[in-house]
C-alpha cells in the first residue's frame, strides 16, 4: 500500500460519484481532494499543485478540455487522466493532443484507475529525472 504522499485532485460535477470515488481511493491509501467544477479545479490547483488530476470532460461551466489546456500551460508537470461518459473519439484524440496522460470511460473500473494512477506517477517521476 502506498503512503499518503500522493497528491491527487478529482474533478467532476457528479458530486456523489466523485466523493465516493475519493473515499474508495482513500481506503486504498490514495488520498484525493475533490473539486466539483472547472473553476474550483483551477483554484485547487493554484492553491496546491497536485501530482495527478482525474478530470471529467463534460462539466457545466469551464469544460474539461479547457481546464486541461489551462493546467498544461501553467502546470505542465501535472499528469491528467481524462474521464468521459460519452466516449466520443474526437474528445479523446483532442485530450491526448493537449497532453492528457490517459483517457478512461465511465463507469470506472477502479483497478484500472489505480493502475493508471501508478503509471501516471511513474511517468511524472521519469519526466523529473
Amino acid at each position: 500500500m502506498e503512503t499518503s504522499d500522493w497528491n491527487i485532485l478529482l474533478v467532476d460535477d457528479e458530486v456523489e460519484f466523485i466523493s465516493t470515488l475519493a473515499e474508495r481511493l482513500e481506503l486504498r491509501g490514495l488520498p484525493a481532494r475533490v473539486a466539483y467544477d472547472g473553476e474550483a479545479a483551477l483554484k485547487a490547483v493554484a492553491d496546491n499543485e497536485p501530482e495527478i488530476m482525474v478530470l471529467d470532460i463534460m462539466m457545466p461551466g469551464i469544460k474539461g478540455l479547457e481546464v486541461l489546456q489551462r493546467i498544461k500551460e501553467e502546470h505542465p508537470k501535472i499528469q491528467v487522466i481524462l474521464l468521459t461518459g460519452q466516449g466520443k473519439t474526437r474528445d479523446g484524440i483532442d485530450g491526448m493532443r493537449f497532453g492528457a496522460f490517459a483517457y478512461l470511460m465511465k463507469p470506472l473500473d477502479l483497478e484500472e484507475l489505480i493502475r493508471t494512477l501508478h503509471e501516471a506517477r511513474q511517468g511524472r517521476q521519469e519526466d523529473r529525472k
Partner: peptide, 15 residues
Amino acid sequence: EINNPLAIINEKTGL
C-alpha cells in the same frame, strides 16, 4: 446520460 448515474451506482456499490 446513463453512464453517469451508472458510474455513481458503480462507485457506491464498490464503496
